[in-house]
Design a binder for these strands. Sequence first.
DNA 1: TTTATTAAGTAAGTGTTACTCACTCTTTCC
DNA 2: GGAAAGAGTGAGTAACACTTACTTAATAAA
Lengths: 212, 212
Amino acid sequence: MLLVKRIVRHTKYMAKTSTKKLPPGRLKIVRALKTLLGKKDFNSITTAEIAKTAGVTEGLIYKYFNDKRDLLFKVLLELFEQFLLQMEKDLKGVEGSLNKLRSIIQSTLFWYDQQRVFTRILLVEVRNSPDFFKSEAYQQCVRDYSKIIMDIIHEGIGLDEIRKDIKPSVIRQVIQGSVEHVCLPAIIFNREIAVEPATEDLCRTIFFGIKQ
Amino acid sequence: MLLVKRIVRHTKYMAKTSTKKLPPGRLKIVRALKTLLGKKDFNSITTAEIAKTAGVTEGLIYKYFNDKRDLLFKVLLELFEQFLLQMEKDLKGVEGSLNKLRSIIQSTLFWYDQQRVFTRILLVEVRNSPDFFKSEAYQQCVRDYSKIIMDIIHEGIGLDEIRKDIKPSVIRQVIQGSVEHVCLPAIIFNREIAVEPATEDLCRTIFFGIKQ
DNA sequence: TTTATTAAGTAAGTGTTACTCACTCTTTCC
DNA sequence: GGAAAGAGTGAGTAACACTTACTTAATAAA
């Protein structure tokens, strides 16, 4: 059952990205933006620059993407799928709801630290796009990520490992918000994330509280 | 001593906004952007629109502001000063570090819920501006807000009300991150924030942890 | 009161940039 | 072989942020 679920998941995430035979121009465009995002922020990257880096004409971008932002969403989607795969892999075999949450926190911190381009897109670049929340990247990946956490919380409540007197959605928001807020300054000021100690501090706070 | 500090703060926050005699055109521009931000997001507001709403010419914007973003930062600065004043007022007379943190959380949730324009600027619009972090609004207000929280945490640790084995900065990030993440969907999807229950849930989580 | 100086505000640009459209070349497949 | 669909081009455009040279109004010194 679990195995089946994983295979379903796997094909689900891989479908859009690598399996389907996509036109080479499209791949080149996506790769070009990824490269450029390593050097400068999205707003200061021009479509002309993307085209030049990709070795195609500007017009081609608009054959495959609705607009510049849409291209960004697609890049995010691709990177997000990889992240979710890794996270679920890390999660495998972990027992107990709190340990599972710890695993997710650690995986996320690690991934955010390693995949700076991905993290900057997710935490800073797409935030102010109202239509990001209608995009595949959001509807598919972000929600999936949230759902994984929610399921663990509900499981934890059912097994009496997590208190019942807090709204599960707020617990989820505390976890996600804390993680993001720990990573944000690191991403913006290009500092590294101390994954292990940050995981420890976050879990200690979220699991046991700050009260002496 | 405390009184002196408050007076200093007060004049500090008011200095930029209301006290100084600013040219009417400047005020009209700031007011115009505030109005427009109530209706649409920053990126889809044009400088021409701002000028027209303000009843001045486009060029005047660039007499008083470096660029369109800088104008946004100034608007945020103004609104942030008001927020800090209110927050400190709410905090007055509250005893105990945890109660103080609760007060801050509640004030923030309330203000975020009421001042949608302010909150949208702060949580979504300025995030992807690399130079926001060099702006007055950040260097003065955001840091001030963080510092207030940090001081309370340190006080709490000193008085044995808050555990010593978590990095104070992480505690601060958990608080700020949680609050922001609770408010973000409400701001984006224009839902109202249930201030009291959210405050309760957040405090319960952060103070006592989610572990049963 | 005159004159010099600074500040407030204007009007007409300009360069850049995201995006479009009509077209060609290439592949696929009956 | 030919048609239909897909991949890719390149010239062009409208919109937009921002500039610059200028005018008008207020301030202050002589």
